[in-house]
Design a protein around this nucleic acid. Structure first.
Lengths: 224, 224
DNA sequence: TTAGTGCCCGTACCACGGTACGGGGTCAAG
DNA sequence: CTTGACCCCGTACCGTGGTACGGGCACTAA
């Protein structure tokens, strides 16, 4: 169980030789002792287990950075680090994973809806997928800081939209307004994001236009 | 709805300015017309929709490369590309997503098991998580080509292992054998991967040793 | 001792999806 | 006509997890 050079270890652990040296550079494992300067690395059993640990943890979704932290905990052990710390990290990771699964499920839904709606044949012009994807991407994600003087992105909270058609209508109404440079509407989040020249139209006028189309509309503070 | 410079477009679409230029470099969008050489880019409505498309497709898990293909389909449309092509891609992506979800579910299971087993307090030495992760990572993943002369990785198919304890026993037995340089055992896949000096012990002797511990063992061709 | 692997090291490179920087040009309001 | 915000371009860099290359030693069996 001794005298393992890097190639053997790589073989046993199931990684590439270069990968082990890469882990060494990343301080995940120490450089093992070598007979003389420039000689071969001879790996101890403990290091091999450490490598197994790294692989397993990776399979569980831990990044190399996180793994380094876990290993660090153990290296500096018997001080105050205890099992609850490790448990915490595992729980946090479990949370991460759950979130990722949720995200993927949403993606799955979106895709499934798209596929459902698609006729599956005929010219592209009839393909609903392209149309659907060109709709607004929904302002539910990141907010951009926009503090322009003559052009601002106004966000409206809109009620009464139930489908893509409603989105379309609202989009159309907004785009008809003077000073509107562009907009994106999402019925899911009930929001619209409008790029507008404020010297030409007020946010209240915008909201009013939307109300005129039969929806409710409230101005959302941009500086949110 | 005209006269949108890059900043406004970025704001409306919800991406960074640099990102739009990046998409341009990646040929996802064309460079929009500019009044004169060196002037500002003025974006058309169509391009803004194209950007929305990109964002939406990204949210659905398509990579930029795939998105470029989708857009390419449309650009060269009315030829033979039809909706079924797009549908195929969406279905393929749906499949990808399902696979990813499955993987994450497995990871979730592993993590949950780990957390379950962990005492949640006390010194790290008692933390089962570290122990569990140090166990073999299971040779179920990639096979390494090993065609060494005096050292080979032998793979054994082992029956009768039901838990980590069994893994431990088998690992111990294997490591006790002369010539064994290292091993990794997985009860899940029912496999062991042993690094061994073949001049010192034969694969059959190894298998016999495992059988002596009460498990079944068969040699798997390394050149699999 | 010599051939044949295997390992050494440093450095560069891959995909992915951007982000940052810096020195300059453009544009519109005041 | 100046000022300030915005945009231009090219290029370099980020994090993530490695992989590849090439010239030169280390080791071992014959």
């Amino acid at each position: 169980m001794t005298d393992m050079t890097i190639g053997k270890v790589a073989d046993v652990v199931g990684v590439g030789v270069e990968t082990i040296r890469f882990y060494e550079r990343r301080k995940l494992i120490e450089q093992p002792p070598r007979p003389r300067e420039g000689g071969y690395r001879i790996y101890s059993d403990a290091t091999v287990r450490r490598l197994h640990f790294i692989r397993r943890a990776q399979e569980l979704g831990f990044s190399l950075r996180e793994i380094a932290e876990l290993l660090g905990l153990r290296d500096a052990d018997s001080n105050q680090a205890d099992a609850s710390d490790v448990r915490q990290r595992a729980l946090a990771k479990l949370n991460d994973v759950d979130q990722k699964i949720d995200q993927l499920r949403q993606i799955r839904q979106g895709l499934a809806a798209l596929v459902d709606r698609c006729p599956g044949q005929g010219p592209l012009q009839c393909c609903s997928i392209f149309d659907a994807l060109e709709q607004s991407s929904g302002p539910d994600s990141r907010l951009t800081i926009s503090e322009e003087i003559d052009m601002q992105t106004i966000r409206l909270s809109i009620g009464g939209m139930h489908c893509n058609g409603c989105e379309e209508i609202v989009r159309h109404v907004l785009e008809q307004q003077t000073g509107v440079k562009g907009c994106s509407v999402s019925h899911k989040s009930g929001e619209a994001r409008v790029a507008v020249d404020e010297s030409m139209i007020s946010d209240e006028q915008l909201a009013e236009a939307v109300r005129g189309a039969g929806y409710s509309a409230n101005i959302m503070k941009t500086t949110e």
